[in-house]
């Protein structure tokens, strides 16, 4: 049993340029280097934040850990399982909330969506229903059981996405901007829920992608700042925030990716 819930070593990802089949002048398309040698260790029971501007590679890293993307080089392990060689075991170990909380059939109710994913997660039918009821109450969606997802607000979809991630009780949660589109009050409630329920009560490890350093300070034990596919700074969010404050030396601000 490894100590780290997530372990990443020298991870790179390069996307091949798209080939234009119908082009009269076929040219070798440029390759896009999105991750350049990422090293990362997230101990069990920690909330780790990934920060950085758009295009810095945060979501790509999360997608590799979720086995949706294959890395070009390097290694990544989740709960001790290699994301390439042992992808099915990684899928058992994670709950993934994609950005924008997409991935539900809008024509079905939230409950029916969750039941579908519970069955897909190999839960027997009776157990699936019980588990859906449990996570439904856990994420605070009471009262919306019979509404179709098309009528859900952004906040409700986020809760539904987290409920789906928790269905099979995985030890690791990968959350891509879970408070995107939420108002400040809802965001605060959401962060408190993640910290108090998911981590302290249920003992989950969370890797959280966010743009917001203040949000990272509020919820994360540690955070890393990514820029152009590299981790340029990491440590407790309060330290990163201090270094990023206006008035600090340009060198200190540059070290955390601002200024």
């Amino acid at each position: 049993m490894t100590l780290s819930a997530i372990s990443v070593a020298n991870l790179t990802k390069t996307f091949p340029g798209s080939v234009r089949v119908m082009s009269f002048r076929p040219a070798r398309p440029p390759r896009i280097e999105v991750l350049r040698g990422i090293d990362l260790e997230v101990p069990r029971g920690e909330v780790f934040g990934l920060l950085g501007p758009n295009g810095s590679g945060k979501t790509t890293l999360l997608e590799i850990l979720a086995t949706h993307l294959l890395p070009t080089n390097g290694h990544a392990k989740v709960n001790g399982h290699d994301v390439v060689r042992d992808a099915p075991a990684v899928r058992h170990a994670i709950g993934y909330c994609p950005g924008g909380a997409v991935g539900f059939d809008p024509r079905l109710t939230g409950k029916r969506n969750l039941e579908f994913f519970a069955l897909l997660g190999d839960l027997p039918r009776v157990q699936a229903r019980e588990r859906v009821t449990e996570v439904w109450e856990l994420v605070g969606l009471d009262g919306f059981r019979d509404n179709t997802v098309v009528h859900y607000s952004d906040g409700m979809r986020q809760r539904l996405a987290l409920a789906r991630a928790l269905l099979t009780d995985p030890p690791v949660l990968l959350l891509d901007e879970p408070t995107r589109g939420l108002d400040p009050e809802a965001s605060a409630l959401w962060r408190r829920f993640l910290r108090e329920r998911a981590v302290e009560e249920l003992g989950k490890t969370i890797l959280l992608v966010t743009h917001d350093l203040l949000e990272a300070e509020d919820i994360c034990d540690r955070a890393a700042i990514m820029q152009r596919g590299r981790i340029v700074a990491d440590g407790p969010p309060s330290e990163l925030l201090r270094a990023a404050r206006p008035g600090r030396s340009p060198r200190a601000r540059a070290a955390v990716g601002v200024g």
Binding site: T67, P88, L120
Partner: peptide, 18 residues
């Protein structure tokens, strides 16, 4: 279009079964 392909493939079933 619904963004469901990724969550489907994250299930415990093999892609062939899906």
């Amino acid at each position: 279009a619904f963004g469901m392909l990724k969550p489907l493939l994250l299930g415990r079933s093999q892609p062939e079964a899906v």
